Amino acid sequence: MTLNRPLIPGRAGALLAELGDRAVCCDLYDEVGAPVYHDLAGQDTHEVRELLTLVRTVPGPVLDLAAGSGRLTMPLLASGRDVTALELSGSMLKLLTARLAEAPEALRNRCTPVQADMSDFALGREFGVIVLGTTSVSLLDAPGRKGLYHSVRAHLAPGGRLLLSTVDLTAGDQAPTETEVEFTADSGRSYRMFEYWTPGAEARTVTVFPAVIGGEQVDVCTTTIRVLSADQLEEELRQSGFAVCSRRLLPDVGARHHSVLIEAEVTA
């Protein structure tokens, strides 16, 4: 879905202005942006090992929320678990389905893709572990997070665990206002990714350009992600009937990312 010109700050905004009418803005999760997001996710193994370690301690099927194109779904399946992959974006689910089609049949048969909203879902079954990784909780506003916690409570088996991660920009030194990373994905496509955050602001902006700009049209993918501290999420979880079992500071990624993994269970 093509967006109207969003207000993009910093160097990314200046580059967008230079491109003028050649630039076509899209959401990072729509039909145009989904392959770009898939390329980004394919470069990122952050938190995967830590999540898998915790998942192994709890039996039962796994629900992977905001599964995207399978960044966590595929490792979870490879670990031998039955996985339901819930994703709102049809474009993302198409990418996941294509990956599953190329996977071994035994692995493919243990995955159930579901198109649904992580803030309001009813699957009619319980799970030993519900995972919300890739800091995707930051995509939800306050009412959305309240709905998420309610839905998770209804789907966690007794003794089950909720695992969710967040980028806690209060967990270290204040980050620079803007960072830029250039990389080449496994697909062979190259990108320039800008991330802009003003210390204290409620959200950060991520904008992705092709590294080599040519042709009459340039697809520019962007999204705005809320900044949610681990303290805030833990308090919301407690208010929604969860007890926090552990909080783990994950290895830093780049100059600004201080990711935290929270483990919670439903209170009696």
Rank of each mutant, 00 (worst) to 15 (best):
A268G: 15
L156M: 07
A255I: 12
A211K: 11
S136Q: 02
G42H: 08
S190W: 00
A230K: 03
G214M: 05
L123C: 10
V181I: 12
P75E: 07
V83W: 09
G159H: 10
L86Q: 11
P61S: 13
L72E: 09
R204G: 11
G33F: 00
P9H: 07
Y29I: 04
L76R: 04
K146W: 04
D30Q: 00
H257E: 15
G60W: 06
S246H: 11
V227D: 03
L86N: 10
A142G: 01
D231Q: 12
D186E: 15
S69W: 02
T53L: 14
P113Q: 08
R204P: 04
D231H: 10
T112E: 14
G10P: 08
L123V: 11
R161P: 10
Y196N: 12
T198H: 09
G254V: 06
A157M: 07
E235A: 14
L228H: 08
M92D: 05
A106T: 11
T2S: 03
I130F: 05
L86M: 13
L156I: 07
Y29D: 09
V244G: 05
F242L: 05
Q239P: 04
R192S: 11
Q43C: 14
L163Q: 08
T84K: 06
G160R: 03
P104F: 07
G214K: 10
E236Q: 15
A154L: 10
C25K: 07
L163G: 07
A268C: 13
G241L: 02
S229W: 02
R99G: 15
